[in-house]
Every structure is written in C-alpha cells, then in structure tokens.
Design a protein around this nucleic acid. Structure first.
Lengths: 212, 212
DNA sequence: CCAAGAAAAGGGATTAATCCCCGGCCAATC
DNA sequence: GATTGGCCGGGGATTAATCCCTTTTCTTGG
C-alpha cells in the first residue's frame, strides 16, 4: 500500500518535478498538487485526503503558515511537512507552531528527503539540522515579538513611515491629524528602542513588519 | 539522438527532480548536475559538454550571472537558458546580457518548459512573456544604474546613514565635518531621486547598495 | 449609565534635517 | 599649464522631526 501525499508549491516546475521524484521513490502516491493554500482548499475533498502534505513556505495568496494552520485545524490527521529554501528563524518557528512536524530545506538531497518522509510517516516527526538550530533562541525572539504588541493602526503607520513621505503627507494619506501620527511615532520609538524615523524604518524591515 | 543538457541549481531537491523531469521528456539526456558555477567548472570536461544549460540565477559562491558569463566566454557553443523564480528587471537583464538566449520562470508549466527548450534547441532563442516585458524600460534602468556612479566615500556615508545615528554622530564616526556629510547627502538625494533620509535609506536597501 | 483607559488631537519648544550658495584643496587627465 | 572632478568646509534660512504635557473624544467593561 502506497503512502498518499500532497504537495503545495507555487512554482509549477518544482511542484511537478517534485511529484515526479516522489513517485520515483515507489512508495508514494501524489494525490494532490496545489499552487497555494486557496488552490488546495478546492482540491482537498473527503474522497481525496492524503496522509502527508509537503508545504512550501513562500507562496502568494495564501502562504505556507496560513495553509499549515488551516490544515492543522481542519484536517489534523494529515502529517504536515514544511518545505522552504530559506531558513529564517521566523519562518521555521511559524511553520512548526502552525502544526508542521518537520522543516526541510529545498537544498537537501533527495535521499535525505526520502529518509525524512519515511521517518515522519512512521514516527510522526523528523529532526533535521535546520530545525534543531538553537530552538531556545527562536523562542526568545518569539517572546520578544509578542512583547512588541503593535496595534493595527501603528502597523499601518509603520508601512507609510517606510517611504519618502513626510509626516504631514502620511497624516493626509491616513486621514488623521499630524498630531495623531506623532502619537504613533512616539509609541513605536519606545517599543522598538529607536530614536529616529530612520532607525524605526530599519528595525521594521529587519523584524519583517514592513516589506520592501 | 537525445539532446544533452546540463542543470545548475543550488537547491538539490529542485536540481534532482528537474533532472528527473527532463529525462521523462524522453528527448533529453542530463549529463551535468551542478550546485553552482564553481561546481560546474569542475564537472565540465571536454568529454562531457552538453548542448544546452539551464542556469539558476540565485546561487551562493558563483551566481547565475557570473556562471552564464563564464560559460558564454569559454563555451560559446552551449545554449544558455536562465531559470529563476523572481522576475526582477535586474536579474533578467543581467542574465540576458551575460549571454542567455532565454529567461524562464520556475513557476512555468512543465509543458511550457518542454516547448521552450525545443524551440531554443531548434531556433536558438525563445521569447517568454517574462523576457518580453518592456525591454526598453530595462535598458533605460540599465543606463540609469550606470549613471548612478556612487563614489566610495558616498557609499561609506550611505552605510552609516542607514542607522539610528544623527548626522552629527555620523560625521564624528567618519572623522569629517557635519557640512561634508551634508554634501554627500545632497549628492545622493539628487542621484537617487529622493527628498528625505528615509527615502534614501530605503532606496539604498532596495538597490542592494546597503545590506541590512 | 458611568468610569477607566485607550485613541486622537493640540500647544509649545527644541533640535535635526533639508536646501541653496559659496570657496579652497588636491589629484588625475588632457 | 589648464581643466575637470572628487573631497572638504562654511553661512544662513526654512522646514521637518522630536519631545513633553495636556485635553478631548471614543470605547468598553462593570
């Protein structure tokens, strides 16, 4: 009896070729190929539910973390495996917290992948080097993030602050007074331990709160 | 007679599975699999020279552009195909300028890949949507980049400007007067078309002049 | 309904940032 | 020898940013 497995990745070329590779292992049956979380929700039916699921982290529309969380909640029996090319702390921690039982990098060798999948199917988990890397530090950063506690309004302001605009223009664009903007600024300065708008922007980008 | 082809990609999983896929097309023979440009130089021998080469853009050690340029110079008969997941203008232009005759995205469908490879092998070129996208704009940006011409001192200042420091502190750290710092600032504002330090920092990061 | 507390806004003052114009110094190039 | 261009410095003015403290408005739980 083959093990049924699903793959979610927005890069069609990788998706299809990885499916081909899994099939070549002879013990896996790829029953679902989705381009993102939304696509998956359509293709996942009661009659077509795999035992395992490989999930790419970086995806448009509905990313890896959201997809993993949805699967973990609505289909808790499916074993989730995160697949990514970058090993940033946030991504790893996010996927594991979302319910993934393993985190694999895209530059692992096929043999390692096969071994990992087998282990996950039998034991329910797999500890790669990537996931082992300093778990304590991950948790510390997590707490730090939680303590940050940025409100939606502040987040919106932060997005605007990372631009060539002046505070007056930002206030106008957000439909509030300059003074209110100033309030957000001061609050964020204190929370993020900076004393200038430049420092604020750089920190926001570093922490991934604002994307370039 | 099968067409001999080589693949260069730092992600082993993608490399191996893409090789599997190409083999499945029945008309291709994957003779080289390399993890980066340096790896390729070792594996490429007179007795083992493929007719075509798929090159990933994002790689450590020796990236796609450098690899493509090297191949184009030392092995001009090999048809080069750029392969990437992002379609930033710089990357596309860089690869095409380095001698690639096509630029494919990793999220293209396998069927499209097969068709493209066939076309490249027969006609020597392939125009995907990605490459077609406004070539004139790419060239304009290229000229703009060349015109940027940032001096070493300006670059050093830019590095310091991307911090929580004030101009006075930066001047102190660089061992020059505030006024001199101001000179760099104004020059860079003009060159990078911004009107605030925040905008300057963001542009510098976007253009890769300053790393976070 | 009222009080606690957050969010929004304002007053007023200080400092940093931005802008424009100016001159001198030095090295490489023509 | 002259010119160009990068580098360094200054005066003076205006605007944006920063800081601190108070008031008003709006929620929200009791």
């Amino acid at each position: 009896m083959k093990i049924s497995i699903g793959i979610i990745d927005d890069h069609q070329l990788f998706l299809k070729s990885l499916a081909l590779m899994l099939e070549s292992f002879k013990t896996y049956d790829v029953v679902i190929e989705a381009l993102n979380g939304q696509d998956l929700q359509q293709k996942l039916t009661p009659h077509n539910t795999p035992e395992m699921m490989l999930i790419d982290v970086n995806m448009p529309i509905m990313d890896g973390i959201a997809t993993a969380a949805w699967l973990h909640k609505n289909h808790p029996t499916i074993k989730l495996v995160a697949l990514s090319m970058n090993e940033t702390d946030d991504a790893i921690l996010g996927m594991l917290k979302a319910g993934c039982c393993a985190y694999l990098l895209k530059d692992t060798h096929p043999n390692t992948l096969e071994k990992a999948l087998q282990e996950i199917h039998e034991q329910g988990f797999y500890n790669a080097d990537a996931a082992n890397v300093n778990f304590r530090r991950l948790l510390m950063r997590e707490q730090e993030q939680a303590a940050l506690h940025i409100t939606p309004k502040e987040r919106a302001f932060l997005q605007h602050a990372c631009s060539d605009m002046t505070y007056k223009q930002i206030a106008q664009k957000m439909g509030i007074t300059e003074k209110t903007v100033e309030g957000y600024r001061e609050a964020l300065f204190a929370k993020m331990h900076v004393q200038s708008r430049v420092g604020l922007c750089l920190e926001a980008i570093r922490k991934g709160i604002v994307q370039l």
